[in-house]
């Protein structure tokens, strides 16, 4: 979990990043590696600046796919989890297939999706949903089962209905779990968009990585990858910050991971 905007915490990974980039830059210069084989970080940065409007267009396409796909995955995942935890029969009937869905290689399904749902946004949304709903379902099911049974009994002695028990006990108790699943899902969503674009697309950062390498525009490919990483990290951080805002009680109780590691 991300702990605020603390300078000290950001400093260490920053130092590591700068060191790695420095070594890369030095190696490329030292061995005179041609740019089409491995561009230097400075060349990638130059490409990002020079072709910024190209990158911006493709970034927007991919971001849209990620956000739409993730929204569908989230809605589908939470709904499915609610049904699974509400009915043991449904759980037994459906849960094995939820798990089974993750053993099917997505790279095999993706080309078929082009035939089934066409060429535009739809196949990307389907691919993203297929891989991103899974961590949401699993975590939400665990979360909805995590409420203290004594707390549920206490609610019943207050005369609470099933609906009230769900809304006031089960759902709030599940929220930290749902957030954990969501943070995994959002990073999967970026990967899903790239897979979708690789299989069939004429735009997006994933498409850009695919077409740039055969054209010996390796720096452009690396630039797109850099933006994809930044997108994944940025979305993850956004959700972590939203979690902090929505669950202040959770962090008051547990502190942060950083504190746990420092001991």
């Amino acid at each position: 979990m991300i702990k605020g905007m603390d300078m000290g915490r950001w400093l260490r990974p920053l130092v590591v990043a700068i060191a790695m980039i420095g070594v890369w830059e030095a190696l490329v210069a030292l061995f005179s590696i041609p740019a089409w084989k491995l561009p230097a970080p400075s060349a990638i940065a130059q490409e990002l600046v020079d072709s910024r409007s190209l990158f911006l267009n493709h970034t927007w396409v991919t971001l849209r796919e990620v956000l739409v796909g993730f929204s569908v995955a989230f809605t589908f995942g939470v709904t499915l989890a609610a049904l699974i935890s509400a009915s043991p029969t449904f759980r037994r009937a459906v849960y094995p297939f939820v798990i089974g869905s993750q053993t099917v290689p997505i790279i095999v399904i993706a080309p078929l999706l082009l035939i089934w749902v066409g060429y535009g946004l739809a196949p990307k949304v389907v691919v993203i949903t297929l891989i991103a709903f899974f961590p949401i379902v699993v975590n939400t099911v665990d979360g909805l089962g995590a409420a203290d049974p004594d707390m549920v009994r206490m609610m019943r002695t207050l005369g609470a209905t099933r609906r009230q028990v769900f809304l006031k006990v089960r759902l709030p108790a599940a929220l930290p779990f749902i957030f954990s699943g969501t943070k995994v899902a959002i990073t999967y969503s970026v990967i899903g968009a790239v897979i979708g674009e690789w299989v069939g697309s004429s735009e997006g950062l994933g498409y850009l990585t695919r077409i740039s390498v055969p054209m010996f525009q390796t720096a452009r490919s690396f630039g797109a990858v850099t933006l994809l990483s930044a997108m994944g990290v940025g979305l993850f951080v956004s959700i972590a910050l939203l979690e902090r805002r929505m669950l202040p009680w959770y962090f008051a109780e547990h502190g942060s991971d950083e504190e746990a590691y420092s001991n």
């Binding site: 203290d148 004594d150 707390m151 206490m154 019943r156 002695t157 207050l158 005369g159 609470a160 006031k168 006990v169 709030p172 108790a173 929220l175 669950l247 009680w249 959770y250 109780e253």
Partner: peptide, 18 residues
């Protein structure tokens, strides 16, 4: 009788999110 008598258990059962 559910909801007609108040019942308090040994555990305080406070909701951490409230």
């Amino acid at each position: 009788r559910l909801g007609r008598v108040a019942y308090m258990q040994q555990k305080d059962l406070l909701m951490p999110w409230r």
